[in-house]
Design a protein around this nucleic acid. Structure first.
Lengths: 184, 184
DNA sequence: CCTGGAATAGACCAATCGGTCTATTCTCAT
DNA sequence: ATGAGAATAGACCGATTGGTCTATTCCAGG
């Protein structure tokens, strides 16, 4: 494997949390699972994340959100049309879906939405989502849309992708994601 | 309250499960919460649902799915156009969203998707979703669409609603759902 | 080399988890 | 009235949960 650089413990924890929460949701993952996957002892967890599971969940969601932002940026960077960018994005996400074993959820939803019924968590989830939409919005404006149209387009794409991912998950097939561009 | 007819224990359990799972997800709800809300002792749970929590979850998801089917039927029954039906549906769901305290998820996703990583569960969730889509599909055909167009329209509406609900939840506002018709 | 804080390591804890089991009560056909 | 099965009731169980605490190891600055 790519274990050349044995990631520092903190990163290993975040990575493991990010993966496990995506698959099983916040409450579906126990500390024992987390520590086993990260190959870290409990002491390290509470050293790096004094508030334990919930702190780690926030960090994991942030990491996952950054990954998404990077994907958004990449797909739209090469695009000359909004439609082009959207198409690339759909393809890229369909790929990710297939690679994930067709069962992971939106990482933010899995870790923050279904987490402890803490208002901070909910607000943070909303904040991350708005970040995604803002990223797409900026590209939309750059590609010629006026402010309002760009906002509508960005939100629309978000909605379509979230919904399609859910149906894809139910069907265990990325077809819905792949055919999404036709519906724009 | 409306405690005129003290619902039989089994129904009380299903109702409580349906509500709690929607709010906290399968793993987020303990048997103690469930039994407290249903005002039922543990013995009754395992009498009516020999396999315990997972059996109850299936029943709860089925109940929730039936409620959705009824809503779909109602909204499209009075409609003379597919667009009319879709509009009514969006309004109706926005209402439900507001009434739920703006935080419940899709009941099937919450109870079956995030449940035990059982393949039966996943398949059943998919089956329920296809039922929703089929219902809309039939109405779409009745309202003049050909088979393929109807299928596409039904799936599209499903995707839009699931995605919009998610964004609405993040923003704690039903606006996205209410404005959805404009985007069709 | 010594030292002090960062990091690791895991034993330990109360609480809660889902589930089992026995005892009791309710209900209704005989 | 009675016997039988359905339903209720909750004590009890081992396993696991998230979290605390102490002991040890690691490593850089003196």
């Amino acid at each position: 494997m790519s274990d050349k650089k044995p990631l520092p413990t903190k990163d290993r924890l975040i990575r493991a949390a990010s993966e496990l929460f995506r698959k099983h949701g916040y409450h579906g993952v126990g500390l024992s699972d987390l520590l086993a996957k990260a190959e870290a002892p409990k002491g390290s967890l509470y050293h790096h994340f004094p508030n334990g599971k919930s702190d780690l969940a926030r960090a994991a969601a942030d990491r996952a959100s950054d990954q998404i932002l990077r994907i958004l940026a990449n797909c739209f960077a090469e695009a000359t049309t909004f439609k082009d960018g959207a198409n690339a994005l759909c393809d890229r996400l369909a790929e990710a879906f297939d690679q994930s074993g067709m069962w992971e959820t939106c990482p933010v939803a899995a870790t923050l939405f279904e987490g402890p019924d803490n208002d901070e968590f909910r607000a943070h989830a909303a904040h991350l989502y708005e970040g995604w939409i803002a990223e797409v919005h900026d590209h939309a404006e750059r590609l010629g849309m006026d402010h309002d149209t760009a906002q509508a387009a960005a939100e629309h794409l978000f909605v379509l992708l979230q919904g399609s991912w859910m149906l894809a998950r139910a069907r265990r097939s990325s077809d819905v994601l792949r055919e999404l561009p036709e519906r724009l």
